[in-house]
Design a protein around this nucleic acid. Structure first.
Lengths: 222, 222
DNA sequence: ATAGGTAGTGAGTGGCCACTACCTTACGGT
DNA sequence: ACCGTAAGGTAGTGGCCACTCACTACCTAT
């Protein structure tokens, strides 16, 4: 196995391990074990643990940006944003991925992590801005709800047998912009509201085929 | 000094130290040193480091809830929510406080931290819901933007000599709900847009006097 | 066959850190 | 004087963990 391939498999293992524990709460041994290599060899592939963490953060942002570009296709404006929202909802299934985001933000006390997170976030914002061309208010709305999704997943709100699950999993949470006001669709928040699965993807997003699944994303460079 | 007083001063020190580093990245010695006591004595006041962290998280949520109750006064509905938004904007000045929030969410991989964070978040949500009586969409909007504020502070976006500072510090970021749609004020995103200071508190919030500052909050119980 | 480069490991090591055992001081009541 | 109790410190200790060093196996090209 080439070093480059090995590096990518280590990166994948690191995503899973860093998801629980973050930068400081994860041991390099756990990552190495999951990647199926010896722990010292990990330091041949990445100079330091922090560098590996930063690589994870960067790939995470890059992956999101690539996903957004992909699902937007040729669309612009609100149509493109709707496609992005739909795709981000699909990420609800990838818990490790969303937790990585949170650890990136929480790790910002470290200057190196901060610049990586900042530039990743900035590139993501500019990607969405460029594709949609929407005003800043709507971008902010989009990102704000993305953050709320992140923390909801972190707290595992949908696991509580509560109205939380209904609030979080309801389509209006996943796509609140679709009906900004009035005539809110009779969402099942009062009824039992199918609490199974993370809200089936009923929207459009049919431009590039069934791209709403996460696993078939383009591999992130580096 | 009584043990109870000592406990509270340790709690205050722990907020500052946990803000950088989170649960796993902070040493009890740093906390003890800041609190002015020996490190072993810390374990006489709190049984374990995680317990101290959870106490910090709980006090953080309780403090926010108390702040919201206070600034809302007798108001309800959007008026109350506006007061809360204004007060939360005031928290922009308290970096440690907002970072604590992020570390609470990121620390949710630990079951104990998760239940503490979940119940704190739940109580906060229900407090806002009870006081304002607003529908779930507006609550979600409020909390979503609060989260975005949190991560913006973590990334220290306002420190970048960029349009970020203008976006984040602009009044429309701090109070985006004030003009939910149409006739979006010609926001100064193109102009220089006074980038000094975190948006002076020009709103009302005159019910209980000048309570918009953070330092004079009611001490959190426990 | 030999020389060199690449993938990979076993065995440390130094340092940090959560947590413990035990001692000291101060004070209040009888 | 005497004792109990509560505040606080000193000196550890066991374990984890990031990172290093020395070494082996294999592969390819001359």
């Amino acid at each position: 196995m080439s070093a480059q391939q090995r590096r990518e498999s280590v990166l994948a293992a690191a995503v899973e391990e860093f998801a629980n524990g973050g930068l400081t709460g994860t041991s390099t041994e756990a990552i190495a074990t999951r990647a199926g290599i010896s722990q010292p060899y990990l330091f041949r592939l990445f100079p330091t643990k922090k560098a590996l963490f930063i690589a994870v953060v960067e790939s995470s942002f890059a992956r999101t940006a690539a996903l957004f570009e992909q699902v937007a296709g040729e669309r612009t404006g609100k149509a493109a944003l709707d496609a992005m929202k739909e795709s981000y909802s699909g990420l609800l299934a990838d818990r490790s991925y969303l937790l990585t985001q949170l650890h990136a933000y929480a790790g910002c006390y470290d200057p190196d992590v901060r610049v990586a997170t900042r530039s990743g976030f900035r590139r993501l914002w500019e990607t969405v801005e460029r594709i949609t061309g929407l005003p800043v208010d709507e971008l902010r709305f989009f990102f704000a709800h993305g953050m709320l999704i992140n923390v909801s997943v972190a707290m595992d709100l949908s696991a509580v047998d509560d109205r939380w699950a209904q609030i979080i999993c309801s389509p209006t949470f996943l796509n609140p912009l679709l009906e900004p006001d009035g005539s809110t669709e009779p969402d099942g928040s009062t009824g039992p509201a199918s609490s199974t699965g993370p809200a089936s993807s009923t929207g459009p997003a049919s431009s590039t085929g069934p791209t709403s699944t996460v696993d078939e994303l383009p591999a992130v460079p580096r």
